[in-house]
Write a protein that binds this DNA or RNA. Sequence first.
DNA 1: CGCCAAAATGGCCACGTGGCCATTTTAATT
DNA 2: AATTAAAATGGCCACGTGGCCATTTTGGCG
Lengths: 337, 337
Amino acid sequence: MPTINDVAALAGVSATTAKRVLREPERVAPATQERVQKAIDELHYVPDERAGALRRGRNRSVGLVLASVVEPFFASLMRVVSHTLRQHGYTVLVAESEYEAELELQSLKLFHGNRVSGLIIRPGYGSPNLDYLLRMRDHGTHIVEIDYHYPDSPFSWIMLDNARCVREGVRHLYDMGHRRIAALGSYDPVINPEDRSRTFPLAMQELGLEVPDEYRRVIRLTEDDAYRLTHDLMRLDRPPTALFGFNGSGTLGAFRALQELGLRIPQDVSLLSFDDYTWMQVVRPQIDVFSQPVDDMGRLAARLVVSEVEQGGEPQIKHNVFPGELLKRGSCAAPRD
Amino acid sequence: MPTINDVAALAGVSATTAKRVLREPERVAPATQERVQKAIDELHYVPDERAGALRRGRNRSVGLVLASVVEPFFASLMRVVSHTLRQHGYTVLVAESEYEAELELQSLKLFHGNRVSGLIIRPGYGSPNLDYLLRMRDHGTHIVEIDYHYPDSPFSWIMLDNARCVREGVRHLYDMGHRRIAALGSYDPVINPEDRSRTFPLAMQELGLEVPDEYRRVIRLTEDDAYRLTHDLMRLDRPPTALFGFNGSGTLGAFRALQELGLRIPQDVSLLSFDDYTWMQVVRPQIDVFSQPVDDMGRLAARLVVSEVEQGGEPQIKHNVFPGELLKRGSCAAPRD
DNA sequence: CGCCAAAATGGCCACGTGGCCATTTTAATT
DNA sequence: AATTAAAATGGCCACGTGGCCATTTTGGCG
């Protein structure tokens, strides 16, 4: 692998002059520039980013920790985050927690070892991991939480207005006459750290409703977990008349389970969800959803990290809330009885 | 950020001894080990991977360049590749080409600058990019192609048996009586470099059929492009009686377009696809697809790269073909006329 | 032709680690 | 107590770059 010294030797100049052609060419005589450029082209020299980062003390790389890259919401987030960061000259290291504390911690360690200068993370999964994040912050990593944030989080974060959406969703179902509503997932700080399931029982309570214990189960927000939960819920003696899915993949699992059980939507059971995925428009009935401005959220996350990293100093903590929009399409209707 | 020297100072030993506690503890006296470990814990010391890589001359990181992280096939691939690489202690840098030459080249440059020791790539998009890959290889990067490979590729690759699948798919439709079959995408070395669309006209020819010029259009393999193409195809004077989608997202776009046009599947038009996505089982009719063993392919890609990187020396070029499986579900039937 | 400021070029070191060799300490043996 | 091998510990340098300061060259002017 050629270094700047090889370039310098080939061009017959010092290493310093060769470097200058890349970073401050106005200080190099045109003829020399040309000679050095020729050597660069000939050797296909590309500066070693690791060595540069080591010397300059700051990496041009950012870690991105998502819950699941298979969830289209996160995939879209990754797309826009990567794209924005790349425009600013940053490399992106990606990892997913797969909704598990252990994997999340592994990813954090890996990224910390790589000295990422920024971290965009969908966090959760318990206080040991929060401690690790705090330590990374103390060591100079700029951290932005997205889609979830620790209670009293000391980091900047970007969130959907989940509480508002959940209340609006529960109200939507309540107004149609639903009283037995089940959520696909109950809150748990480690297994399922997530604001929607935390708000759900409160929103129910505010309307004078209770969530029966038999409806409460802690699951990961995966298609399979939601599929199994739906099967179990609908086989109860008093099954819910409406299901509220908290993410798109979970709703897909629920939809599949309902089909298998021969239950019609919305005649036998109503279905409401988060995340506006295309498949929800091609199934019948189409699914009522809260859509999220993913691209705006991702772009902001990337920009926040870049500006924090580049200005240096104490990070300005910023909290950003985006609104969700309820798209009504026909998967919710009055309950039968 | 603490270094090994800080650890050594705190523990009252030399840097060499401190390092040894991490890499060859059997050479350090138990009492010293304990003291150093305490210092490590206290300072939360984590070795700087960049400095290590610089010194040792080899990075423990691998680049992954995909066409689109929003395509679930690639998302799954990313999941299993990341997971496997992490088990081997490697960090993954991810980028997507978004089906464009320029973005692919940008990603390659970024990764080359980061001195990734391996690269797993869904390549394509013209010879300048191939040249760049060759140069990276000459500089010691171990490259594995996946899902597509350049003709006469000098790299190891992992592919589905696309030619066989396309022939089987065309035959499947032919046997039902279809003669006017359109593919969602025509081959183009830069815009749409992809084996399925390259094989398609050949497979048709072998059955004595021709693909009309008006069916041939070069598109990117995205939902939107396939959506538009489907709209246009079905409005022709002699529209196809069957559509063959070459990837899952494209088929979703086509499905949506057919719905909008009020065309029934399979009565008015048959639909056949690659990639077995869950939504294809919950729409009516369910979609006939070729499923790919994504996890096996991804795991193998990761292992190939790791073994090449770690054994060093001249890479053993290996070509691996995986079979696709046709799942017949009801989206294909005899044409009406 | 000599002077001098500006332009152009060069030298040197540190970033944090890994690998190698050197030195000191320990404990077993005579 | 002297000898010696093994165990334990330490010193030093290079990886490729960025930043800083030092030196040489150039060209305009009297």
